[in-house]
Nucleic acid binder design. Structure first.
Length: 285
DNA sequence: GTATGTACCTGTTTGC
DNA sequence: TGCAAACAGGTACATA
């Protein structure tokens, strides 16, 4: 699934391939991906026609394309979304949801939003070129130069909660999903259920740095594998999979101590950790 | 405001 | 063999 590194790869691809292009026509093939847009599918399509794409930006897992009128096309890939830049004669993808016909960049290619599960979506953000107001509540991500580590540490320790919950809280830090949260916790040798208010300042700082390292390492691998005519998430996450220390490794030996890793059900999903290196607290949160 | 739980989606895998 | 249940999980929204 697309995580922050994959979204950044997509953003960089869009910057290379659709900057300066004008949207000449939009086909909404399924209403769900544009559900966040109050204009509805037709209004969405009409509002985009004629607009020129002037940039490609990202915060956390959201990305947006600022337009020449000050609005922006805001997108999230959800769990299975892709943004592809394709030649017009390429056959439609099975889960093609929205097609943007482009003119003026890369010989009239199309920008296609493909999404099997449709957790992702597109919408127009009015006046959202700099930062769409819809995502103003989303914190900066750890790769953002303006991310404030001290403020993060202060806020985490003020909360009455568990550390993994906070790693996944987009109001505190964005871009960290279930996979990278487990990886950061493994590196920090912390169980995700540890109480935030009892975490020391240095430990909280260390955890954040591990999260940043994991994201950077994944980005480095995804970044090297991608530079094609299309913008894809396919295969990118697969590369980093080989580097995972915790996620998905239930029953396999911990790379630090050899103890078989465990899987725990947690908030309708799974957490992977080492029973020896990451002991469960008495009262997990 | 804060903390927690759940619905939303569909293709694939697992289990009886 | 066939069908149902489990699973994947980021986000918005509901609830207390």
């Amino acid at each position: 699934m697309p995580e922050l590194p994959e979204v950044e790869v997509v953003r960089a691809g869009l910057e290379r391939h659709v900057l300066g292009a004008t949207i000449t026509r939009v086909d909404v093939l399924h209403p769900r991906p544009v559900r966040r847009d109050p204009r509805g599918p037709t209004g969405f399509a009409d509002a985009l026609a004629g607009r020129r794409i002037v940039a490609a930006r990202r915060r956390g897992k959201y990305l947006w394309l600022p337009l020449d009128n000050g609005d922006a096309l805001l997108g999230h890939l959800g769990m299975s979304g892709q943004l592809l830049v394709q030649p017009p004669d390429a056959p439609d993808e099975r889960h093609l949801r929205v097609r943007l016909v482009l003119e003026g960049a890369d010989e009239g290619r199309e920008l296609r939003f493909v999404d099997q599960r449709m957790f992702g979506g597109l919408s127009i953000s009015e006046g959202g070129a700099e930062l769409p107001p819809e995502i103003a509540h989303i914190a900066r991500d750890p790769l953002d130069a303006a991310f404030d580590d001290d403020e993060f540490v202060r806020r985490v320790r003020r909360r009455i909660s568990g550390v993994k919950r906070q790693l996944l809280d987009q109001n505190l830090v964005s871009g960290v999903g279930n996979i990278y949260a487990d990886e950061a916790l493994w590196r920090a040798q912390l169980h995700g259920g540890r109480a935030t208010e009892l975490i020391s300042r240095p430990k909280a700082r260390e955890l954040l740095q591990h999260a940043r390292d994991v994201l950077n390492e994944s980005l480095a691998q995804g970044g090297t594998s991608f530079d094609a005519l299309y913008v894809s998430t396919e295969g990118v996450s697969g590369l980093f999979e080989r580097s995972l220390n915790a996620y998905g490794r239930e029953g396999e030996p911990c790379y630090r101590c050899g103890t078989p890793l465990r899987r725990e059900a947690w908030m309708n999903r799974s957490s992977y950790s080492c029973p020896a290196c990451q002991p469960r607290p008495r009262h997990p949160r």
